[in-house]
Amino acid sequence: MAIPYQPSLPQQIQLARIEQILQQPNIPQTTLATIYYDRGLLHDSLGLRDLARLDFNNSLKLNPNQPDLFNVSGVIFTQMGMFDSAYESFDSTLDLAPDHPYAHRNRGIALYYGERYELANDDLLPHYQQDINDPYRVIWLYINDLKLVPQQAQTLLQQRYAASDKKDWGWQIVRMYLGEVSEEQFLTDIAEQSKDNEQLALRLTEGYFYLAQRYQQQQDYPTAIMLYKLALSGNVYEFIEHRLSLLELNRIFTVEQNATPVETASPTA
């Protein structure tokens, strides 16, 4: 287990400095928009989502031409299950910056959670083709393929793995999905090969999330819930895997509640 992330001294100092700057009069509108955006990113990195959204909204009112801000807002909307708002945010990002490096992936993930698997593929596949050596692009294509073309998903994953350079650590997740590495060995390697607590926390957040995905696909919800909670335990708020663990837990609990029959009172004589 990694020691959970804690607010760092530089983060706290930066927040204090921003508060001081905001007390100054006659700040130019474009500068104020940047300040709100920077503070929103800080709040988001500390898990303060509502404060982040407030800052982002203030920033957008002052300067609506901010593709990165729309992208971050879309990720937060996805985490909250507000998919239509997420799609609109990512569309705005791509309208302003058609070559944005993450908006297609993030919109594809939002479409996946919105159960629009063909549209998700339309975003995730070109995104993968731009860099076939990025394991996370392969992983998200595979997760979507399990819904879109379940009988072909494993074969496609194997083909994309074979075509890659296999250098990034994330390919270990793909090897685990392909059965080349056991789950026990997968977690042992993370513990033994992480150079410090920070790297351990990052890799465990990813590892637990993608393991949970496997168990969720198998409808082993108790194990999936445990793993999603472990993915949250490192406090790596900025990672998409941390954000989506919250979403997945809410989805599982909703399914379980809907599947539980409602008890009715017995009629009285």
Rank of each mutant, 00 (worst) to 15 (best):
R107W: 13
R107V: 08
G108R: 00
I109M: 03
I109G: 02
I109V: 15
L111K: 14
Y112S: 02
Y113C: 04
G114V: 01
G114P: 11
E115D: 08
E118Y: 12
E118C: 02
L119A: 14
L119W: 13
N121M: 04
D122V: 10
D122N: 14
D122K: 13
D123Q: 14
D123H: 12
L124D: 09
L125Q: 11
P126Q: 06
P126F: 00
H127K: 05
H127F: 07
H127P: 09
H127I: 00
Y128G: 01
Q129S: 02
D131Y: 00
I132H: 05
I132T: 15
I132D: 10
D134M: 06
D134T: 09
D134N: 15
P135L: 00
P135Y: 03
Y136P: 14
R137G: 13
R137H: 06
V138E: 03
V138Q: 12
V138A: 12
W140T: 03
I143D: 06
I143A: 02
D145H: 02
L146C: 10
K147Q: 15
K147T: 06
L148Q: 09
L148Y: 09
L148N: 11
V149A: 07
P150W: 00
Q151W: 04
Q152N: 12
Q152H: 10
A153E: 08
Q154F: 15
T155M: 05
L157P: 15
Q158W: 11
Q158K: 15
Q159V: 09
Q159H: 12
R160H: 14
R160K: 14
R160Q: 15
R160L: 00
Y161P: 14
Y161C: 04
A163K: 14
A163H: 10
S164W: 09
S164R: 00
D165L: 01
K166V: 12
K166L: 02
K166E: 13
K167H: 09
K167R: 15
D168M: 01
D168A: 05
D168S: 06
W169Q: 10
G170Y: 11
G170P: 06
G170D: 05
W171M: 10
W171K: 06
W171R: 04
Q172F: 03
I173H: 10
R175G: 06
